[in-house]
Simulated assay, not measured.
Amino acid sequence: MMNFNEFIEVIKSKVEVKLGDNHLVECKQVLKNNGVTYHALHIRKEGNNTSPTIYLEPFYNIYLNQGADRVNNNLINEITKLYTENIDSPPYMNEVWKFTDYEFAKNKIMYKLINTQQNRELLKKVPNIPYLDLSIVFYLYFGADDNEQYTAMVYNTHKEIWGVDSEIIYHHAMANTQNAFPASIRSLQQIMQEFAQLANLEDFSDNKILEPPIYVLSNTKRVNGAGVLLYANILEGFSEKRGCDLIILPSSTHEVLLIPADNDVDFQELQAMVKDINITEVPAEDRLSDHVYLYERNTNTIYIAA
C-alpha cells in the first residue's frame, strides 16, 4: 500500500488526467488552528478565479480501509464531483475587492479565541490581543449556508492595507460578533435529555440530576463559541443569578463548561481531567486550553486557577 505522500501524488496525477489540460491542480498544505496541518488539492479551471479546496486525509483513510494496492477510480470520481459541486463562486466573491476598504470591511470582522502556545507561528502573521493563556484573533465573516460558514482570517497585511491598529479591529469585532452570534447558556442536563429523546433512549430519566450542575456556554451557532467568555455581562449576569463564582472548563474552541464554584473544589484534579479529555476526546484542531479558569463575581474577573 502507498504511504500518504505517494497517495497524494497519484491522486493529483489522476485528477489532472480526468479534468484535462485546462485545469490547474496543485497540492498545498493548509495550516489550521493549533498548528494542525492538512493536505489539500486546489483545483482551478482556466479563466475561473475560484479554486475549491479538497482535503485529502479523509480520502486516504478510505483508501486504507479498502486495503487496495491501487487507487480506486471511485475515489477520483468523488474528488472531481466535490470540485464540480463547489466550482461556482460563493456570493461574497463578487464583493471581495471592497474588503480593501476598512469602512466596508469593519462590519464583517469577527473574533475568536485560540491557544497562544499552540499557535505561535500563526500569531506572528495575524493581528492579535493576548488574553490569559489565549489570544484573540480576527476573521472576516461573509455569511453561511446549510453546509458551512464562509470566512477568511485577518492577517497583518489586511491591517496594513486598512491602516488601523489591533484595538480598533477588536472594537468592531466585539460588537459584530455579539450581534451575529448571540450567547447561549444551557444546562448539560437539558442537552442530555434532548439527545436521549432524539436517540429514543428509554432508560434515560428526567429525574437524574447532575451534581454539581454543569452549564454549556457557547453561541447559538455552536461555532467558535468559547469567545462568548468576553461578551459583556454574560458571566456577570449568570454568576449573580447563581449567587456564586464560576469554574470555567475549556471544553473546546466552540464551547466552555460552567460549574458553580464551592470551597471544596480541587483545581489540580479538574486540570488533570481537562488535559485527559483534550488528549482523548477533543480533536487537536478544536482544543482551547489545558487550564482551568475561575470567574470571580466580586471583581468581575477571569483568571487561571490551575
Rank of each mutant, 00 (worst) to 15 (best):
M1V: 08
E9Y: 12
I11T: 02
K12M: 10
D21F: 07
V25G: 03
V25I: 10
K28S: 07
V30C: 02
G35C: 07
A40T: 01
A40F: 01
H42R: 13
R44H: 01
S51A: 13
I54K: 02
P58M: 05
Y63D: 02
D69R: 12
R70L: 10
L75P: 03
I79T: 10
E85F: 09
D88M: 08
N94R: 14
T100A: 11
K106S: 11
Y111L: 15
N119D: 03
R120G: 04
E121N: 13
K124H: 03
P127N: 06
N128H: 14
P130E: 02
D133H: 06
L134Q: 15
L134N: 11
Y139S: 09
G143C: 04
A144H: 08
N156V: 00
T157E: 08
G163S: 11
S166M: 00
I168T: 11
N179W: 00
P182Q: 08
L188N: 05
M192S: 12
E202Y: 09
K208A: 12
P212Y: 10
I214G: 03
R222P: 01
G227K: 06
N233V: 01
E236I: 07
G237I: 01
S239A: 15
K241E: 09
P250T: 13
S251F: 12
V256T: 12
A261M: 14
N263M: 12
D264W: 00
Q271L: 04
I277G: 07
T280N: 13
P283D: 12
A284H: 04
L288G: 07
S289R: 01
D290H: 06
L294G: 03
T299S: 15
